[in-house]
């Protein structure tokens, strides 16, 4: 049995079947991400683990103990919410000390723990400030400190970065991961942002309409999506029908849908001779910059695919020009 074990979890809200038999294990010290679109049930599963929702069927085990029917305060779990949920009438010190005071620890211990924790999250100088005096990122770090100062068995992060601007979010992703690894806290992170999931996770569980669509390491999920949903959600895959695949490559598609990552398509102005690859020729229909790459739309035999190229290689491929492409056969993934 894993450190955290969900066994056949079902959850209904009235007639809506939100979780449909979830079986999932999380190992000690792991950072696991529940990834999926809004309304897929990932936050509900997290809330069931926290005890904020009761499961309709199934059991939840934490560290070998059945916690299915325990109240939130009996579960020894820390949680950070999307909207921070800091107590507005309390200073940073009081917020972080809140749970420790309920545990009736002595004042000196509380003070030491609070100070240590604020040092870890880099907010020692904000100890006497109120939440309204802090920026969004600082508030989220206080929320994190408040959760982990309790030394919980598991830390739950429910879309903690979604209300924070892009640049700060990237920094906080790294910081949360650093703290998680430094303290070796088993963590479950919920997000709908696949990039965030890739950066932070040991394991990703991809959710779709109340079920786990696919589980694996970030690399495995990104490079080998099993289903059309996974390919659509996790990357910017070209998803072709068997007919479109045939029109593009001349080969017969071995599945109803075939997925090709934009970055595995090699492009050149002159004919390519890549071994064990599908070769073809098309016209650049348009190009859009995407961060450090340029995404070209290539029209070929009535099919349009997208291919990524690093900026410095992309200079000579202009709209309307003829381009040769090569797609290695192993990078054409058959979807279920």
């Amino acid at each position: 049995m894993s450190y955290i074990q969900f066994e056949n979890i079902h959850k209904y809200f009235g007639a809506a079947h939100v979780l449909k038999g979830i079986n999932l294990g999380v190992e000690y010290g792991e950072l696991v991400t529940l990834l999926g679109p809004s309304g897929c049930g990932k936050s509900t599963l997290l809330r069931c683990l926290a005890g904020l929702e009761q499961v309709s069927e199934g059991k939840i085990f934490l560290d070998g103990k059945d916690i299915t029917n325990l109240t939130p305060k009996q579960r020894d779990i820390g949680m950070v919410f999307q909207q921070y949920s800091l107590f507005p009438n309390m200073t940073v010190r009081q917020n972080v000390a809140f749970g420790l005071q309920i545990q009736k620890l002595d004042k000196a211990t509380i003070e030491n723990k609070v100070k240590d924790m604020l040092e870890i999250v880099g907010l020692s100088d904000k100890i006497n400030q109120y939440p309204r005096q802090l920026s969004g990122g600082q508030q989220q770090r206080v929320a994190l400190a408040r959760a982990i100062v309790m030394d919980p068995k598991v830390l739950l992060l429910d879309e903690p970065l979604s209300a924070i601007d892009a640049l700060l979010r990237k920094n906080l992703q790294i910081e949360i991961r650093r703290i998680q690894q430094e303290l070796n806290i088993t963590t479950i992170f919920v997000t709908h942002d696949q990039d965030e999931a890739m950066v932070m996770s040991d394991t990703i569980h991809l959710f779709n309409v109340g079920q786990i669509e696919q589980s694996g390491t970030p690399t495995a999920i990104y490079t080998h999506p099993r289903t059309r949903f996974a390919a659509n959600f996790i990357g910017n895959y070209n998803i072709l029908t068997a007919g479109e695949f045939h029109a593009l490559t001349g080969a017969k598609g071995e599945a109803e849908h075939i997925a090709i990552r934009p970055e595995v398509i090699a492009l050149s102005r002159s004919p390519l001779n890549t071994p064990n690859a599908y070769l073809g020729k098309g016209i650049i229909a348009g190009s859009v910059p995407h961060g450090n790459v340029v995404r070209h739309s290539i029209a070929c035999n009535g099919v349009t695919i997208h291919a990524d190229q690093l900026f410095d290689e992309a200079v000579d491929l202009q709209k309307g020009c003829e381009v040769f492409f090569a797609i290695e056969k192993e990078n054409c993934l058959c979807l279920e």
Binding site: A50, G51, L52, T71, P72, K73, I77, G78, M79, F81, Q83, S85, F87, P88, F98, G99, I102, Q103, R146, A147, M150
Partner: peptide, 15 residues
Amino acid sequence: INVQQLIEAAEILGA
């Protein structure tokens, strides 16, 4: 104020 979430946050902290 988000009463429900503040109370949930406090409950998780043992209140």
